[in-house]
């Protein structure tokens, strides 16, 4: 599989230059590297504040990373001029969590879908209509939806519209940031299956950001587990969840409640809370909450190592 996206050493520190000397600098992302193949889905999981969305925004070039590179189809996105950036941006699209605020309420769905065609290809509304109708059908909406406004649709339908808008330029990569989190499970399943079938049809790649390990298990090929701005473990989904190496991955998995009475348990308890990125712990950022922590964990940050094939983890005392 050829890699569509190669992210290397990506880091992001927020704070002005003046702040950087002071203690207010916040490192939201630290030395993140991964690849994403054509037609592949890579998940990014972790608790709120772990840097998932910052990662997405750096990849999409909505914010400038402090360090590292983002190679998309062999071109470094961080080194392009404005025009080249705009051209390549049509090949990467994003879907956000909130289907309510991400659509312009004053515009018809047709106008919303026409906008990227006008911006990137100079295509006028009338000429765009056949493509608008086609993409609406593809996401399972009637063509009459083009003349309606967002408030006339349910949450699930709005998320279909957001998918249609992301699809209309026929991108190669879609970044989905908690794209199904706000939906009811019955509708979430509809949207996940839709995204799956679109992927098969177009050979798309997804970077799929979520806090839901169930979604990861059933929708992603590989996954990155993040904690306080760093990737702590990555690998193929099934192996990683069956046999997690990093204690944080294991805790996340064991805290996710399973709808199965035979799996009823006191959901394994991870003590404490995620620390503030403004004041990260010494050594391994996870050590204050880690049941396996030893002295070395308090003083030395572990680096990512690979166990076998595609598994990577950063831990001094990995799970057996």
């Amino acid at each position: 599989m050829k890699d569509l996206l190669v992210v290397e050493g990506l880091g992001k520190t927020f704070g002005s230059k003046k702040f950087l000397q002071a203690e207010y600098a916040v490192t939201a992302l630290r030395n993140v590297s991964f690849t994403l193949g054509k037609g592949e889905t890579v998940g990014v999981v972790g608790e709120s504040g772990c840097g998932k969305s910052t990662l997405a925004r750096c990849v999409l070039d909505l914010i400038e990373p402090t360090t590292g590179s983002v190679l998309f189809d062999d071109t470094d996105l961080t080194k392009l001029d404005a025009k080249a950036k705009r051209d390549i941006r049509s090949r990467i699209q994003m879907i956000f969590q909130d289907p309510y605020s991400s659509l312009n309420g004053k515009r018809t769905i047709g106008k919303t879908l026409a906008e990227p065609l006008w911006v990137h290809e100079g295509v006028k509304y009338k000429e765009a209509l056949p493509r608008i109708h086609a993409v609406l059908k593809e996401v399972g909406l009637p063509v009459s939806a083009a003349d309606k406004y967002p408030h006339e649709f349910s949450g699930g339908q709005r998320q279909r519209i957001a998918i249609a808008r992301a699809l209309i330029l026929e991108p190669e990569l879609i970044i989905a940031d908690e794209a199904v989190s706000a939906l009811d499970v019955s509708v979430q399943a509809q949207v996940l299956l839709l995204m799956n079938s679109i992927q098969k049809e177009h050979g798309l790649s997804y970077l799929f950001i979520t806090h839901d390990l169930g979604v990861v298990r059933n929708f992603c090929d590989r996954v990155l587990v993040m904690y306080l701005g760093s990737v702590v473990e990555s690998g193929p989904v099934a192996e990683l969840l069956t046999n997690p190496k990093h204690p944080y991955t294991k805790s996340l998995r064991d805290a996710a409640p399973i709808p199965d009475i035979s799996r009823r348990q006191s959901l394994a308890l991870l003590e404490g809370e995620i620390p503030s990125p403004a004041n990260p712990p010494s050594g391994c950022a996870f050590h204050p909450r880690c049941p396996r922590a030893t002295d070395i964990c308090r003083s030395e940050a572990p680096t990512l190592q690979s166990s076998d094939d595609q598994r990577m983890f950063a831990c001094h005392n990995p799970e057996p």
């Binding site: 699930g156 019955s186 509708v187 399943a189 299956l193 298990r217 929708f219 099934a238 399973i258």
Partner: peptide, 30 residues
């Protein structure tokens, strides 16, 4: 163990589980 109502049965098939891959089947409509 023995969900009976068609809605309960269908709902249980829409929840992606972290412990196993399985065929999600959505409930059509809303």
């Amino acid at each position: 163990d023995s969900p009976s109502h068609p809605y309960t049965q269908a709902l249980l098939r829409t929840v992606p589980r972290a412990d196993a891959a399985f065929e999600l089947s959505p409930i059509e409509g809303q």
